[in-house]
Every structure is written in structure tokens, then in C-alpha cells.
């Protein structure tokens, strides 16, 4: 199945891909609309390395140049890495959990709930910020979680969760949320652009505050997901099998659903709705490394991170000085790549 065939290559390939992402992230720091010379970026970055502080001469580099590299590009790249890692891991988890190739982070109405929350905040007006996050982000986070709770409660019978009802309720609520967003846009046409731009996702206001808010959710969430990769493998072959093997399917499902919801909500709240990553990246990697979650999950995390860094870099540099919403880039550049992979894998099967 997998392109790497032999399992013993998986580890070195994984280490190489991590190095690749790091290289990619560093490359991204050198690119941007401001034309900063590469040696300058290099000196600035070196001077911020622990132990080297103050030892690298920064004369000749203006304060604004340092700000651009350290306060603009660096947090952006890190936030893109984190969001990509989180969304791809969630997507991969959901696809195994629901045994459904269409599953993605927004499946249970999380994205649309976040969108509705943000829309309400945008329509009411921009208030004060809390914990360095705007009211829009907080409203988005609340909207996402409220939506998931509603979907969850609809599909719960006793202690069991019906999968079909979960998906259907998620879709229904998504449609409802989108419709309400549209209604609000119609009545507040003057706020339409803001809502639209928010729903397309962007890292342009990335900052250390957002990173520190997202990081704990991500660390705890990914840890829990990695603990359950073996369970995911079994559940993806069928719940009955899983039960007969002594796995507490309902409990695992609930834990993972909660983790997925919170990680997605936190990501969407900090950077808007960024589609495609959570849906396609796990599929791409499934084609490359096979569907064993023990290797698929780490590769998804790295792949998602790499993909969003690339997309955000493109968003920054393809049409200066305009910023393209990263959500628009992901699909435009990602879809052809995925389709090409699909065609290739189809050929190899035939």
C-alpha cells in the first residue's frame, strides 16, 4: 500500500521530514514583502538564539527590520506550524473515528459555530480584548464549543453516541449556522467584508499572545491523540471488533471527540476558518505512508505544519502588498496536488 513499502524506512524518513519542516520554517522567515537582505535576517535570527544574545553585532539594521523578522514573521510562521499540525491531527483522528473519508475538523459544526460566534461579535462591534485575544476570537471559541455541545447532546442516547446522528446533526447545525451568518451579513452589509475576511482565515495578526494561548490546547490535545493511536487503528476497522478486543469504544470516542473539538475551536479562534488542511493532508499522507495511525498520525502532524507554512508564505508574498487569506490559498494550491496524487494511486492500483 504505502509508497515507502518497507516499514524500517519510516523512522529515518520521519526524522528527515521534521528536519525538512524546520528548514521550511526558517526559509519562510527570509521571505516577505519587505525587502530585507538575507544576511540581515540571518544576523537577527542568530542574535535571538539563547546564549548568543548581544554577541552578534546588529549595527546597520534598523529597529523596524528587527521588528519585522522577530515580531511579524516569526510568530506567523510558528502559528502556522501549530495550526497546521493541530488541524491535520484532528482530521486524521476524525477520519479514523468515523471511518469516513469526508470527516474533517469542521464535521461537527465546529467551524461554522466559530464563524457564527465571530460574526455576532463583529456585528455587535469590537469591544475590549481579554487575555490579548480580541472579542471576535473569544466569541468564535465559545460559538464552536456551544455548537459541538448541541450536536453531542442531540446524538447521545444514554451513554452511547450514535455516529450517524452525530454527522447528520453536525451537518444540519452547520447549515443553520451558515444561514444565520448570511442573514446577519444581509442586515449588516457594512460589516459584510469583515465577516467574509474572518471566515477565510488569516495569520496576519499572529502574535506571541495567540501562540501562548493555542500551545497548551495543542500540547494536551496531541498528547491525548497520540496515546490513543492504537485504539484508533482498531476502531477504524469496526467498533464491534474494537469492543471484542476489550477497548472501551464509547469512552475513547468521547475523549477524542472532546479533544478534537477543543483543538479545532482554539485553532479557528486564533486564525479563522482554514479549510482543506484537516481534510486533505491526512489523505495525502495515507497515500504515502499507509493508514497505520502509529506512523500516519506523526506524519500528519508534520505534513499539516509544513503545508500551512508553505501556504501562509505564499499568502504573504504572491501579491504584494495585498495579503491573500490563507484559507483561499490552501485549496487553490492543495487541490491540484491532491488530485494528482489520487490519479497516481488509482493507476498503481489498476
Amino acid at each position: 500500500m504505502s509508497s515507502f513499502g518497507n516499514r524500517k524506512f519510516i523512522k529515518p524518513v520521519f526524522i528527515l521530514s521534521i528536519l525538512g519542516v524546520i528548514l521550511l520554517a526558517i526559509t519562510s522567515l527570509f521571505l516577505g514583502t519587505a525587502n530585507i537582505r538575507f544576511p540581515d535576517v540571518f544576523r537577527i535570527l542568530l542574535s535571538y538564539l539563547p546564549g548568543l544574545k548581544g554577541r552578534i553585532p546588529l549595527d546597520g539594521i534598523s529597529d523596524s527590520t528587527i521588528s519585522i523578522v522577530i515580531k511579524l514573521r516569526l510568530p506567523r510562521v510558528i502559528l502556522a506550524l501549530l495550526s497546521g499540525a493541530g488541524l491535520a491531527a484532528v482530521g486524521s483522528t476524525m477520519q479514523s473515528l468515523f471511518r469516513n473519508p469526508m470527516a474533517e475538523p469542521g464535521l461537527l459544526g465546529i467551524s461554522s459555530g466559530a464563524g457564527l460566534g465571530a460574526t455576532i461579535a463583529i456585528v455587535i462591534g469590537f469591544g475590549d480584548s481579554i487575555f490579548g485575544l480580541g472579542t471576535t476570537a473569544i466569541a468564535a471559541f465559545i460559538g464552536a464549543l456551544v455548537t459541538v455541545l448541541i450536536v453531542y447532546n442531540i446524538s447521545r442516547t444514554g451513554s452511547r453516541l450514535s455516529q450517524t446522528v452525530l454527522i447528520l446533526a453536525g451537518i444540519a447545525i452547520s447549515f443553520m449556522n451558515s444561514a444565520v451568518i448570511q442573514l446577519l451579513m444581509i442586515f449588516r452589509r457594512d460589516r459584510m467584508d469583515y465577516i467574509m475576511m474572518w471566515t477565510m482565515g488569516s495569520f496576519s495578526t499572529a502574535g506571541w499572545n495567540k501562540i501562548f494561548i493555542l500551545l497548551p490546547f495543542l500540547v494536551i490535545g496531541l498528547t491525548l491523540i497520540f496515546i490513543h493511536t492504537r485504539h484508533l487503528n482498531v476502531i477504524s476497522t469496526g467498533e464491534e471488533t474494537a469492543k471484542s478486543l476489550g477497548i472501551e469504544v464509547e469512552r475513547t470516542k468521547k475523549i477524542l471527540l472532546a479533544v478534537c473539538s477543543v483543538v479545532t475551536a482554539a485553532t479557528v479562534a486564533t486564525s479563522g476558518i482554514i479549510g482543506f488542511v484537516g481534510l486533505i493532508i491526512p489523505h495525502v499522507l495515507r497515500l504515502l505512508v499507509g493508514s497505520d495511525q502509529k506512523s500516519l498520525m506523526p506524519f500528519s502532524v508534520v505534513g499539516g505544519a509544513a503545508f500551512l507554512v508553505i501556504c501562509d508564505t505564499l499568502a504573504r508574498i504572491v501579491a504584494p502588498p495585498a495579503e491573500i487569506p490563507v484559507g483561499a490559498i490552501t485549496a487553490v494550491f492543495g487541490s491540484p496536488f491532491f488530485i494528482a496524487l489520487l490519479i497516481r494511486s488509482k493507476r498503481s492500483v489498476m
Binding site: T33, S62, S64, S67, I68, D193, S204, R316, E323
Partner: peptide, 19 residues
């Protein structure tokens, strides 16, 4: 004057580099 964005999306890099 250099275009630094529209109402909603600003290019912070361009803004900063204009000092």
C-alpha cells in the same frame, strides 16, 4: 504613497518597513 493594504487586511511588514 505605497499601498499597505485595504480596510481589513493590512500588510504589517510594509507598514513597519515604511517606518
Amino acid at each position: 504613497a505605497v499601498v499597505v493594504g485595504d480596510f481589513i487586511e493590512w500588510n504589517f511588514e510594509t507598514i513597519l518597513s515604511l517606518e
